[in-house]
């Protein structure tokens, strides 16, 4: 009887793990979030220096700066953004790849496609919108828009991965909306959303799933 009991329990465990493994991308690592957050914070700090230690206000008058200064800052910020994006993605991918290897799971399988598919549609939409806004000189909305669309992407991807991602997404959306109201504090909201939130949720996910 005892062995029977044990078998039933193991059956249920097997069923649960198989359901999760087959429908969710479980290799997302908390360390990916932490590293992306740290990189974003460094990026925000560099942006702060580029804006002359905050003496240049990132506000509705931003585009009224002398043209050469405006152009110089915009190109630097654009390059900085690109470097931050690529290195955050790279480090995120590295830690997830490491976790997948540890779990003995392939990093690219069906759930990877499901995850990326639902993440990328809002993300690319937001990216295109940012480029349009960038060329329309309405740059003070960028922090808000990047946060909101990133949050939407996370919420839509969350059904295919760790449950924490949904809460991270909702938090990003709320910050994005706040950034739209308090438009002069865009950089601070951006640092909170892409830096602090990533680190906080990364630590939570790491403690809950990898420790």
């Amino acid at each position: 009887m005892m062995t029977n009991q044990h078998d039933h329990f193991k059956d249920i465990q097997d069923i649960k793990s198989m359901m999760e493994k087959s429908s969710k991308f479980l290799s997302l690592s908390g360390l990916s979030g932490i590293s992306a957050g740290v990189i974003a914070l460094i990026g925000a700090a560099v942006a702060f220096f580029l804006l002359d230690y905050g003496s240049i206000k990132y506000d509705e008058n931003f585009y009224l700066l002398p043209p050469h200064q405006y152009e110089h800052i915009m190109i630097s910020l654009f390059l900085l953004g690109l470097i931050v994006l690529v290195s955050a993605l790279g480090s995120g991918f590295y830690f997830s790849w490491r976790k997948a290897k540890k779990q003995n799971l392939p990093i690219i399988n069906r759930t990877t496609y499901l995850l990326l598919n639902s993440l990328l549609i809002p993300l690319i939409t937001g990216g295109i919108l940012c480029i349009i806004i960038f060329f329309r000189h309405d740059v003070n909305r960028l922090a808000s828009i990047t946060l909101i669309f990133y949050g939407l992407g996370l919420v839509s991807a969350s059904k295919y991965t760790l449950s924490e991602i949904q809460y991270l997404g909702i938090s990003e959306i709320i910050l994005g909306l706040l950034a739209a109201i308090f438009i002069n504090y865009g950089l601070i909201f951006w640092a909170l959303g892409f830096g602090v939130l990533h680190i906080v949720y990364g630590i939570i996910a790491y403690i809950r799933h990898e420790k």
């Binding site: 059956d11 097997d14 198989m18 359901m19």
Partner: peptide, 16 residues
């Protein structure tokens, strides 16, 4: 165990 596994996968995925 194999049938249990197959069904677990198929009830949470449209098709596999």
């Amino acid at each position: 165990r194999v049938k249990l596994g197959i069904m677990s996968v198929l009830v949470v995925n449209d098709y596999v």
